[in-house]
Computed example of a mutant assay.
Amino acid sequence: MQLRELLVATRAVRAVGGLTALTVESPGGGAQSRLDLRRALRALARDRATVQCLLDDGSVFAGTVDRVGADHLELAEHAVDRPRRRGSVSGVRAVVLAAVVAVRTLPPTAA
C-alpha cells in the first residue's frame, strides 16, 4: 500500500470529530512553529511531487506544483501516471490559494 499525504487548508475545516478529552498544544506552540499552506506547497514543489489539488467549488486538478506565490500556485498539469517532463505537461494552471481546500499527494511514478 502506497502512503499518500493530504494537506488540508485550515480555513476549509468546519468541524473535527473523534477528539479525546485532552487537548495538547504543539511543542513550541508559537507562530514560528506553525506550518502555513504556502510553506507546505513550496515543499511539495521542491520534492516535485505529483498532486491532486481540490478546490472549494469541487474542481480537481492534477500535476506538479511548479511555483507558489503570495496568493496563488502554478500547477503544471500532466497525466498522474507520468513524471513531470516538458513533453508531458499539457498546460500550466494558476490556482488562487484562497480556493484550495486540500492537496493530496499521489504515488510516485517511474522516471
Results as ranks from 00 to 15, higher is better:
L7E: 08
D47F: 08
G58S: 13
R93T: 09
D81H: 14
A43I: 02
A94V: 03
T64F: 00
L35P: 03
R46S: 13
E74T: 05
R48W: 09
V96D: 12
A76T: 05
L41C: 13
L75F: 04
R38S: 01
P27T: 06
R84W: 06
V68S: 02
D56C: 04
Q32P: 03
A49I: 07
A15H: 00
G63T: 09
D56L: 11
P108D: 12
G30V: 00
A76V: 08
A9M: 11
L22D: 10
H72V: 00
Q32K: 10
S90I: 15
R82H: 10
D56M: 02
A70W: 06
T20Y: 00
Q32I: 04
R4W: 08
G17T: 04
T23M: 11
V65C: 03
A40I: 05
V60Y: 10
V65N: 10
A43Y: 04
R48N: 15
C53M: 12
R38F: 07
M1D: 07
D36A: 08
M1Q: 12
A76N: 14
R4E: 15
D57Q: 07
R104T: 13
L7C: 05
A102P: 11
V8Q: 02
V103E: 01
R11I: 00
L3N: 02
D36K: 12
R11M: 05
A98M: 01
C53L: 14
L37W: 03
Q52K: 15
A102D: 04
D47G: 09
C53T: 13
S59K: 07
A98V: 01
L19E: 08
L97T: 01
L106V: 11
T105G: 12
R82W: 06
R42G: 10
V51G: 07
V103Q: 04
R46D: 11
R11D: 11
L54H: 14
V24P: 02
A45S: 13
R67D: 09
V13R: 01
R93S: 07
T105C: 08
A9T: 10
A12C: 10
T50P: 08
P108C: 03
G69Q: 03
T109W: 07
L19Q: 04
L44Q: 10
L106C: 13
Q2V: 14
R67C: 00
C53A: 15
G63I: 14
A110L: 15
G18H: 01
P83L: 10
A79D: 14
V13I: 06
S59T: 05
R14N: 02
L44E: 11
R14F: 01
D36S: 09
R34C: 04
V51P: 07
R93F: 06
A70R: 05
L97G: 06
A21W: 00
R39F: 06
A21I: 07
L44F: 13
L37K: 01
R46V: 08
L7T: 03
G30H: 07
V60F: 09
A62P: 00
V103M: 10
A98S: 15
D56N: 15
A110C: 11
A70P: 01
A40S: 09
A45W: 02
V24G: 00
L55P: 06
R104S: 12
V80Y: 05
R85D: 08
E77D: 08
L44A: 13
R82F: 01
A9R: 15
V96R: 14
R84Q: 14
L44C: 11
L106M: 12
P27W: 11
S59W: 03
D36E: 13
Q32V: 06
H72F: 02
L19K: 08
